[in-house]
Nucleic acid binder design. Sequence first.
DNA 1: ATGGTAGATACTCTA
Length: 255
Amino acid sequence: MKIATWNVNSINVRIPHLVEWARSAEPDVICLQETKCVDENFPLTVINELGYEAAFFGQKSYNGVAILSKFPIDDVEKGFPDDDDEAPKRLIAATIGGVRVVNTYIPNGTELGTDKFQFKLDWLQRLRRYFEESCSKDADVLLCGDFNVAMDEIDVWSVAQWEGKLHFTKTERAAMHYVKQWGFNDLFRSLHPDSREFSWWNYREGAWQRDQGLRIDYIWTSASLAKRARSCEIDRYPRGLEKPSDHAPVIAEFA
DNA sequence: ATGGTAGATACTCTA
């Protein structure tokens, strides 16, 4: 089974790239973030024609997550259990082939010291609590998505440039590490201990052309699922297309 | 210190 994660930065703008990439990479499951469309406007017909079922949870203009799958999608959960109707739509979970897939678009944080930055840290606390309350550590659990945090020095193009900046502050990294300590394994890093590869490049400053990026998109697995992992790669190809998302997909294969 | 780009919406916000 192949499972992928991709922040598409508007699913309706990115449909041509999504279709082309899905046909060539052939993932069984695709977790999407920043779909930026309400559920009535979700391009379900195109997705179905591509061979996928879909569960989606979107809102106007911002955020929005979806899970596409070639296999049946069961036990869909949208948002945290204690979210109200106003909560940003950043989490969708489902069981596919016995794997509990949790797809997240972790808050950006906007700027250090703002309410939105605090919201990001609080959201990560709630994410850890969510796993404690809803998942068993012995189960096959997969957490993926746009985490908006680079975990280690090898995950940023320049430590000097990023130290203490949004996405790479000690507080964000500690909060993310606390989520990881629930029992997760960073699949790309486990399989590629020394690879400095990125999954996001700013649209500005020629970041893509200079390969000045960050690794902020992840596939994390529980211990039992990690044992079945065969590969985990970042596919840079779609980032080089015309009018790309600023993120590249990450794809993992399991036995 | 500033502004550089992109997307959705409605003349600005979020990233």
